[in-house]
Amino acid sequence: MSRSDAGEPQETSPSQPALESTSPLEWVIAAIGGLLVVAAIAYMVVFAIAEPERPPAVTLSVTSVTTTPGGYLVSFRVANAGGATAAALQVSGELREGGAVVETSAVTIDYLPQQSEREGGLVFTRDPEDLTLSLRVEGYSEP
């Protein structure tokens, strides 16, 4: 690419003011731009090669239980350690009292990209502190 203009005149003569040649400042900025483009392409290619095709691997953890006017809010974080994005991720929670389910709640996380995390919340009308709380990921679709 850099050699292709070798045959043309070396410098623009002052008699052609309409044609500007590239200033050192512009070359610096162009070099940064070029570096970024090459880095981005390299990153994507390396990512594609290094990351084998893996399904989403979602882990779920409860971050807090707070009392809100609308009920008891169980905040959670889902993290995807897998190699693909999970779309329409279904998260559900149950409150049990001595083995019997007394309340359920569910929410859908639109997208959980690979190697990323998202947060959400489930609302219950009974206090989870007094009961057995369990959250789980039910399923997802491919985007």
């Binding site: 690419m1 043309e8 052609q16 500007e20 040649s21 731009g33 970024l36």
Partner: peptide
Amino acid sequence: PTARLRDDVADALVVLL
């Protein structure tokens, strides 16, 4: 207005940044 191909390449990289 550019005179040479390498100026066009420079412009392309600048606008990408």
